[in-house]
Each structure stands twice: as C-alpha cells, then as structure tokens.
Design a protein around this nucleic acid. Structure first.
Length: 412
RNA sequence: GGUGGGUUGGCUGAGCGGUUUAAAGCGGUCGUCUUGAAAACGACUGGGGAGGAAACUCUCUCGCAGGUUCAAAUCCUGCACCCACCGCCA
C-alpha cells in the first residue's frame, strides 16, 4: 500500500504506474470517496466530542441530548465505515511505484541485461535434467504424480544430499554475512500473505488455502519472515535486520504453461532459503545491490554461469519497486532459467503489515523491506545437473558442495 | 479435541457502567544538583486519524469483530491467541 495522502496528491503518477505494470485498477473515484469521507468524519468527530462532554455529568437533559446524538451517529457511522472500506479497497489494490531506472515494457526482451557470463559450447550431446535424473535415479515424477498429482515429485539418492548440501551451503555464506537463520512455518494466515502482496484467495491465486482453517501454505519464506515483525515498531539502531529463512514453498501455478513447466522447473512444492531485510528507507537501494551481490556470490561459488536481469515494469509484482533476477545457464535445454529474484519493496509491505521503526529523534516511520532468493533448491538442482554432466553420463558434484555431500561424483 | 483461567500503554499491574482526561511502579528521555557519575528532585514519555502556518485542539485505540446503553476497559455474543490440566502424539 502507498501513503493515502501521496495517492490523493499524485493520482496522475499512480495511473501511470498502474498502466506501466499492465494492471487494471480504477482510481477515478479515489478523490471523490476521500472528500465524502472527510466531510462525514468531521461531523462524526464533532458529535462524539459533544457526547464525551455530556457523559461527565448525567442529567435528564443530557440524557435527552445524548439520545439525539446517538440517533444522528447511528445514521452517519455506517456511512463513514462504508466509505472508508471502499477507499481502503482501492488503496490496497494500487501497486508500488516503479524505480525510475527500471526498464519499461511488457515483453521478455524488455528486461535489461545487467551482466552475463559467457557460455561454453558443449563438447558432447547434453541431456536435460529430467533425462539425467531418470538415468541416475535422482527423482521420480511418476510417483509424485500418483501420490500427490502432477508437478509433485520425489527426490532420491544424491539429489536429496544435494538439496541438503545447498541449504547448508547457502546458510553458511549468509551466517558469515551476519544474517540470523530461521526455519519458518510453512503456513501463514491470509492477512499476512496479503500483507506481503500475495493474493491469498481466488482462482488466480498462487496460494493453497487449507479447508476449514484460516491458513494458507506459504509460497515463500518471504511471507513468514516479513510477517515476523508485523504490527511492530523496531528501533533504528537495530536496523538493518538481516534474516535468512528456510521453508518449503507451495505454489498452485494455475494456468502456467510452456516448455519450462516440465520436470523440476515449475513445481507445486520446493525448498528455499530466502533472505529478508528490514532497513531504513535511505539505505534500501544499497541493500538491494547487496542482496543481489550475495545471490551472485552463491551462484559463482557453485560454478554455474548466470546472467543478471533488471526486470521490466510489466513483470514486477505489485509490491516490487525494482527487481533483479539471476538466470542460470541450463545447457540441457540451452536456455537461461530464473534461479533467484530479489526485490526492493520499499515501504509497500511495511505499510500493509504495519512495520515501523523509531528514529533516533523519537519519530516513527515505515521502514523498507527487501527480499531475495539465497537458494531455491529445485532450480539450483537443474542447473547443477545440466552444467556438471560428463560425457560418460555421470555428474560431478560442485567443488564447494563436496564437503556437504560427502562425494565427488554421481554415477549408477 | 475437552475443561478451566487469562489477554489493559516498552514492561509489571490497578480498574469490572459515568470524578479514568487509563491509578501506581519500573524502564526511557530531558532538566536541576554534581569536577564527573550515582542518588534525590522535577518535567516529559504508545499508536492511528481530522483541523491548523504553528502553538495546539478534537477524535479513535484497553486481543479482534459485532451488540446493549444517554454513557463501555467495565455488561452480552462470536472469533483469535496465551496459560494450566486431561486426551492424543513425532
């Protein structure tokens, strides 16, 4: 959510942002609603002030006056509430502003390449990760489908060890950076999910809701890490707070399609270590660069070629002010595939979740939040299998993971 | 899942229909005193909103949402969460 005052004073800019994101939010009634609400609010507060004065010295007269006030309020208060809710509903739908330097556009080619590794030509016929997983008995998609449905899978053998290794590898790097490690709930209340900017309900929602419970499965630990401080005021001296959280991630992926929807690339469940930062507004851009640098450090360490994209306005989530993705080279299909994503959400999530900080001078203000993938194990696994395959059909374990996995080679 | 108890400001804790504009204490900030510090004393000390250039004034907020009443922290209903015991259980 944006500052309601800012919205009222900058409707043109808001409309431009909505249009640049390709969203449809009707803000034409905002000014009208706010004016009508303001008028009623003044009258209601006036009446309440009168009533408060009356209740100090009850008498027959004051009780009669009180009845009159009550009757007028009975009419006005529901109107006030209704207008407030209508206004809130629109404000809640308005996306964040967009960083001036973020590329505009709606197509994949509109993403701006920040930097890209060179990719070597394969010296032999490469397999994709599905073929490798099958040959080396590392995953079972058929069993996943039988037990849980399409896009679920079992990891087996070294794939399991690799997943655990990747998690510990990422945590070890982040611990050195001073992050606080977390294992978060895999479920969260819709209010928190919504606060982070995910749509918890509806046919297009990416969130699984539990029947009969006010709970949903998280799509990322961003939800639970951001929700950790919901409704709190943090001390400026404690910022930035750097959190690293492991969770399973569940996504309905309704309506997803394309060649990347097979195998491990787009699945209903995966494991992820997520980074989440709470910081002062003036340092959030610097922190965004910092999160990006950590994502690069993690993939460079794994020895996997990647490129960095500054994501186009048309592909930003509602909360994101700017977003950088890392795409790893996935030679099995000869494509770049998204493996990490880091967003600066400025004060958008903080406002929706009610997270502020107290400045040294005692004032309070909304802080900024940022998130970034440290490691999403399923996609990292694809990149590892496809980049580290050898002509004899075996797969090498990346050097940095050997101590965690306990072997150097996957073979059957 | 069952039964009982509870949820008040940063913390402890009083209040159980109208002198509560939420007592008191702790903590915090500033000041007086002091070479400095402590102690003592004094003042200030949650958040949202409206109006105002500002000083300030008003309003909402006692877990959340409704209701009763001229008047609700206080009474009623529903929900959430916490604690204890029982049941179940990795």
């Amino acid at each position: 959510m944006l500052d309601p005052k800012f919205v009222l004073e900058n409707l043109k800019e808001i409309e431009k942002t909505i249009q640049e994101r390709g969203m449809k939010v009707d803000v034409s009634f905002v000014a009208e609603l706010a004016a009508a609400r303001g008028k009623i609010l003044s009258r209601v507060e006036e009446l309440r002030a009168e009533r408060n004065k009356l209740s100090k010295k009850p008498s027959e007269k004051s009780i009669r006056q009180g009845t009159e006030i009550k009757n007028e309020l009975k009419n006005l208060e529901p109107q006030l509430k209704n207008l407030g809710e209508q206004l809130e509903k629109i404000l809640w739908q308005i996306p964040n502003l967009i960083h001036p330097k973020a590329p505009r556009g709606f197509e994949e080619k509109d993403n701006k390449s920040v930097r890209a590794d060179k990719v070597a030509k394969p010296a032999f016929k490469l397999l994709d990760h599905e073929q490798l997983a099958k040959k080396l008995d590392l995953a079972d998609f058929e069993a996943g489908a039988r037990v849980a449905g399409a896009k679920f899978y079992y990891l087996k053998n070294e794939a399991v060890l690799l997943e655990l290794a990747l998690i510990k590898y990422a945590f070890d790097i982040l611990l050195k950076e001073g992050f606080t490690p977390f294992i978060t709930p895999d479920l969260a209340k819709p209010a928190i999910i919504d606060g982070i900017g995910f749509v918890p309900r509806g046919p297009e929602s990416n969130i699984y809701l539990l029947e009969g419970e006010d709970l949903g499965l998280v799509g990322t630990a961003e939800i639970t890490l951001g929700g950790y401080h919901a409704g709190q005021i943090l001390e400026e001296g404690d910022l930035p707070l750097k959190y690293a959280g492991f969770s399973h991630c569940f996504r309905r992926e309704a309506g997803s399609y394309g060649q990347f929807s097979k195998g491990l690339y787009r699945v209903h469940q995966f494991s992820k270590v997520e980074m989440f930062l709470f910081c002062r507004p003036e340092e959030s851009e610097k922190m965004h660069e910092y999160l990006l640098s950590l994502e690069e450090k993690i993939f460079r360490g794994l020895g996997i070629p990647y490129r960095v994209l500054d994501i186009r306005a048309g592909d930003l989530g509602a909360a994101a002010y700017r977003k950088f993705d890392l795409e790893a080279w996935m030679p099995g299909k000869g494509e770049w595939g998204e493996v990490t994503s880091t967003s600066n959400t400025t004060d958008y999530q903080a406002r929706r979740l009610g997270i502020k900080y107290r400045k040294k001078n005692g004032e309070t203000a909304y802080l900024h939040t940022l998130n970034g993938t440290a490691i999403a194990t399923s996609r990292a696994l694809i990149a590892i299998l496809e980049n580290y395959q050898k002509e004899d059909g075996t797969v090498e374990i990346p050097k940095v993971l050997v101590p965690y996995v306990g072997k150097k080679l996957i073979r059957r």
